[in-house]
Design a protein around this nucleic acid. Structure first.
Lengths: 116, 116
DNA sequence: GATAGATGATACGGATGTGAAACGATTGGC
DNA sequence: GCCAATCGTTTCACATCCGTATCATCTATC
């Protein structure tokens, strides 16, 4: 079932979630990094640098650097494709799953407290 | 009425909206900038630098620089408080309203196409 | 086996954000 | 009138991100 949301509720939802993320002072991802992370966790593998670059409409270095940053935080991991060693397969991590679990809970809770 | 949203739907919503924003290649705001903008437009005035800094739990220069950036894009404007000339009153602009209108429409539409 | 193509990573220059500290302008208490 | 307090801004050194161009590695074609 689709989710019915009115414009003012959409803005309040974004404010509430963003405010929580900012105040929490914890993981601070770029919008692009967040989209990359979500894509890796929501869409079927395999995920490659060029694939993500095409999906987001950005250059490959953007993806490489985002993976560097998120790999440093242990949110994703990379390994060479054994069948074609030019490719890099991007994989999920426990910490990445945990982060998105907590994030989605935050969104769900914020949505639950929205005024009409 | 509160909005019922399941965790997986929350993640898909964020991905869809983020993907749209990234691909659009248009206004690219930091999470902090976005929260500031939403606060200015959603909560009752007057808005001051120190008030926003306290609300977000960040230092005042963060607010000043965010206002510099968004002022450059004509998303917000500033003027001195005539009654106490130490204060700066932050105000909305037509362009800022338009941007948030379009953004909220994007969110609403993305929510409407969410799978169960 | 040589070579052209594909893939991801890196180097570079420029732009922007951050925290900490210091600053100038303004106000209010005494 | 004087001086401390308040408010927003600026400065500084540092880190991160971007796009372009280039690179090293690997594959596939001839």
């Amino acid at each position: 079932m689709s989710v019915r949301l009115r414009p003012i509720q959409a803005l309040r939802l974004w404010q509430e979630v963003g405010l929580n993320m900012v105040r929490r002072h914890a993981v601070d991802l770029t919008q692009r990094q967040m989209v990359i992370l979500l894509t890796i966790y929501l869409e079927p593998p395999p995920h490659t640098v060029r694939g993500l670059a095409a999906k987001l409409g950005v250059t490959k270095p953007v993806i490489t650097r985002a993976l560097d940053a998120m790999g440093e935080m242990d949110l994703v991991s990379r390994r060479r494709d054994p069948t074609d060693r030019r490719n890099v397969i991007i994989q999920r991590t426990v910490r990445g799953s945990l982060f998105l679990d907590e994030f989605s809970d935050l969104v769900v809770e914020a949505a639950g407290t929205l005024a009409p």
